[in-house]
């Protein structure tokens, strides 16, 4: 965004100088392009500097991870906090023998199914609750109770009722992902501009058409914010659930490695979890941006 403004200024400066340079030949004429080149270089340097600065904290952290255990930690602490390269080696080994992939796919299958079920159910219920005020009054207290009960507090209940198999994992993920989507769907429908509803009504739209053509499209960005939050929390809860009782999955990998004293493997698992979280969030942000182009475009223009 800053690039055009920076290259514009030398142009403006070059205008008058080349105009009054008729007397002393081409000196100033050659100066103008070189100035532009210099300013391009300057913006290039600026971009690089910004990139270095914004990744600086990460790099510093990785450096600390690599060097800290070797030079700063005591011998006993070094065992529990191996330097980065050992963790990466362990990660490479886990990928090579296919273990990581099988744990990852187990976790992904669970969180994707739970998340999918939650989104479908929560959007449907959210639309109903937002549309029928009496239903909202009836359900709202109960929803508040459930929403404020931490999903993981209910984990024992899920395990007791549904066993330690896939069903209980998928259910707890669905439970955790359900509420952000539900609440955002309700908010999205509630905050539809009443003027738009009036305009659509004045065109004689039926309730169903009004819903389909006005309320739903205008609520989509808000709903997607909820979906993004649900995506993050579904991974979070799943890892915890896998730590408590599972035979596969990233959470299991982490806890199992800890128990078997394979500390680098444990850190490899943690690293995978954080990379997965980043990736999921990035993807959902991209989807959210796609669906709210008409809304976010204002912001991206002015920034």
């Amino acid at each position: 965004m800053t690039a055009p403004t920076l290259t514009n200024t030398p142009d403006a400066v070059a205008g008058p100088t080349s105009a009054d340079s008729n007397a002393d030949g081409g000196r100033t004429a050659t100066l103008a392009p070189s100035r532009i080149r210099a300013s391009r270089l300057r913006t290039g340097i600026l971009t690089v500097r910004r990139a270095v600065w914004s990744s600086g904290a990460i790099l510093l952290f990785l450096l600390l991870w690599e060097l800290g255990p070797t030079y700063l930690a005591t011998d006993s602490a070094r065992v529990f906090l191996p330097p980065l390269h050992e963790v990466l080696q362990a990660l490479g080994a886990l990928i090579a023998n296919g273990q990581l992939q099988s744990h990852l796919s187990a976790s992904l299958t669970r969180s994707a199914s739970g998340f999918g079920i939650a989104v479908v159910a929560a959007v449907a219920l959210g639309l109903l609750v937002a549309w029928y005020r009496s239903l909202d009054q009836f359900l709202n207290p109960l929803l508040e109770v459930f929403r404020n009960t931490a999903a993981l507090a209910l984990l024992p209940v899920f395990t007791l009722l549904l066993g330690i198999g896939e069903v209980s994992k998928i259910s707890i993920v669905a439970y955790a992902a359900f509420f952000p989507v539900l609440l955002n769907t309700i908010a999205g429908v509630r905050t539809v501009d009443p003027l738009l509803v009036r305009a659509a009504r004045s065109l004689g739209l039926s309730n169903l058409e009004l819903f389909q053509k006005v309320i739903l499209p205008s609520a989509v960005p808000t709903i997607f914010t909820g979906i993004r939050m649900a995506g993050t929390s579904s991974i979070l809860v799943l890892i915890a659930a896998e730590m408590v009782g599972a035979k596969a999955g990233l959470g299991y990998l982490i806890v199992n490695s800890q128990m078997s004293f394979l500390i680098p493997d444990m850190y490899a698992g943690i690293l995978t979890v954080s990379l997965l979280g980043l990736l999921v969030n990035y993807l959902l942000v991209a989807v959210e941006r796609h669906f709210s182009r008409w809304r976010t475009a204002v912001g991206s223009q002015s920034s």
Binding site: D193, L195, R198, V214, P217, S218, V220, W294, R295
Partner: peptide, 8 residues
């Protein structure tokens, strides 16, 4: 206030 649909 125009009442245009902003997503269209």
């Amino acid at each position: 206030q125009y009442a245009l649909f902003p997503w269209r």
